[in-house]
Design a binder for these strands. Structure first.
Lengths: 204, 204
DNA sequence: ATTTTTTAGTGATTTTTTTCACTTATTATA
DNA sequence: TATAATAAGTGAAAAAAATCACTAAAAAAT
């Protein structure tokens, strides 16, 4: 199920690009190539989701994107915040792609008042003490954690209590979250490890 | 197979921490909890890899880490470079965890000479024209791409021709690489999409 | 010394995921 | 108008992954 969701998210992103460039129809084969899977898998995913295409034409870009948007609520604009305004956190604050893709970073938090005062960004920044209040009052649904490892779990707890639905975790620790909350880890070291290990195994 | 590699990488990271804190033995159950899987899966992975533990004690931390290190070559120090010294790229340049975990960022590249001159870091930075030469002469095995989408494929091509084994891609495009090269995408927008979509599906 | 408890090891089973093989529909071409 | 080609749709098969159910070993407790 996770695999399907992941593929659908990639497809959705690709469709957004295709829509911009004016494409009307797209085949399962092209979609498969774009996201790195097979045409069979794409068609099977759509089949399960009860999404229909047109023989010899493929899927209509606009309506496909619309349908996926509805089914997975990817059409809804969602608010996010970043906790931890170190170098990575501040880089993400101004990451321009989020805005174009249905996500809006509307707040940043840091434990250092000093840092907050020095930061140059259009986005509102707050001391971490304001986290719970700002998250719930502004309807923030997603929390991005870029604090040091030792503070990460505590921040996650506060975010969840304040009502976020999911956490994107850049700290290299495994966060405990209730099972209705979605957590996704982006551990750069693990990513490099994976690449190195996979290279070793597959070219052995 | 990818799943196993991913789990092993996480386990390896966890073992490094445990080793530091002086733990001698660790059970499949604790490992499973630490990386978010089941004890069965951990034991099955080890069983396939012909890694043995001790009844009623678990696995010896030191020798387990050693064995995984050898089997997946995670014990070898590997050199990496970052191409694209925007905010994300420069944040990664100084990402302190890499050093402690067997990866060394030894060069950064950017197309803007201006940017290169202004950057404050201990790591050597070069104009992107020097990429091929520096990568091959310094034995860089991993390339981290943080350039804008439109430049990403070209950079990937140069990196691969210069001999990198794997690419960690932060740009939001699907890179074409030969199949013996490992590519891992870190697309932040997709990550947020996945979190949002999964929340919708699982709490439906 | 015996029993209980804990934890690994692994073949078998189950579940999930992917791929295949074939049908059907529609457009393009001869 | 007939034929060829293309691409979706989907049940069935295969492959992959995870889980279970059990055994065995060793330590701890009685």
């Amino acid at each position: 199920m996770n695999n399907t969701i992941e593929r659908i998210c990639k497809i959705y992103g690709y469709l957004a690009v295709q829509e911009q460039s004016g494409a009307d129809f797209i085949s399962s084969k092209e979609l498969a190539e774009a996201i790195g899977t097979t045409e069979y898998t794409v068609r099977k995913d759509f089949s399960v989701l009860d999404i229909k295409g047109y023989t010899r034409k493929g899927y209509e870009v606009k309506s496909l994107k619309e349908k996926l948007g509805v089914k997975f609520r990817l059409n809804k604009e969602r608010r996010a915040c970043i906790v931890g305004l170190g170098r990575l956190g501040t880089a993400l604050l101004d990451y321009e792609h989020f805005q174009n893709d249905g996500f809006e970073i509307i707040a940043g938090f840091d434990s250092s008042i000093n840092k907050i005062e020095r930061i140059q960004t259009k986005i509102d920044v707050f001391p971490v003490g304001a986290l719970a209040e700002v998250v719930s009052s502004r309807g923030i649904e997603l929390g991005i954690i870029t604090v040091p490892a030792k503070a990460a779990q505590e921040i996650a707890d506060v975010l969840i209590r304040a009502g976020v639905k999911g956490i994107l975790n850049f700290s290299p620790v495994k966060l405990n979250v209730p099972k209705d909350i979605v957590r996704l880890d982006m551990d750069f070291t693990n990513a490099l490890r994976f690449i190195a290990a996979k290279f070793v195994i597959q070219n052995k």
